[in-house]
């Protein structure tokens, strides 16, 4: 499994307009719905699930990134959105620092193993300083997809 398979290109938001955590989650769920990766009717339920997950412990694991993630029945195929915030968002993160990069992951409810694999792929890449820095500096969808491809082809070092 690699990043390009997980991330839906139409759901990449290089400049998030929301300024708080709940707004960002809403915006990125909306991006996935617009990209037909999720059903519009499930929007409220999905947002609520993301917030429930955040209540169980922040998915902001530090260094300016957060990976909100949920499994849901209405999702046919795994899909992730990426959002970048120039201002930084308070995600109640592990290191208490603002979050600039958000990877929002939606998975089908019946495949916990795929969900986990995707989380690991995302985490592994976001743990790399170079990847995080390049991602944060990206200004357009094209730059981000190119970066994801580079990462998948192991062209980015630690």
């Amino acid at each position: 499994m690699n990043l390009r398979e997980i991330v839906v290109e139409q759901a990449i938001v290089p400049r998030l307009s929301a300024l708080d955590r709940d707004g960002v989650i809403n915006e990125l769920v909306g991006a996935l719905i617009d990209a037909d990766a999720a059903e519009a009717s499930a929007r409220d339920a999905l947002v609520k699930k993301f917030l429930d997950r955040e209540a169980k412990g922040s998915t902001g694991f530090g260094k300016g990134v957060a990976v909100p993630h949920v499994k849901h029945d209405s999702i046919p195929k795994m899909a992730a959105a990426i959002g970048l915030s120039a201002e930084g968002v308070d995600f109640n993160a592990y290191d208490r620092q603002p979050v600039y990069t958000v990877f929002l992951l939606l998975s089908p409810a019946d495949k916990p193993e795929e969900h986990l694999q995707a989380m690991e792929v995302i985490f592994k890449n976001l743990s790399k300083d170079t990847f995080r820095r390049f991602l944060r500096q990206s200004g357009s969808v094209d730059e981000i997809t190119e970066l994801l491809t580079d990462a998948d082809e192991q062209r980015i070092g630690g």
């Binding site: 209540a55 412990g57 993630h69 949920v70 916990p112 193993e113 969900h115 986990l116 694999q117 989380m119």
Partner: peptide, 12 residues
């Protein structure tokens, strides 16, 4: 809500 719910330990 958490990612590991329903997963086998070997899958983590």
């Amino acid at each position: 809500q958490v990612a590991v719910c329903g997963a086998k330990i070997s899958e983590i």
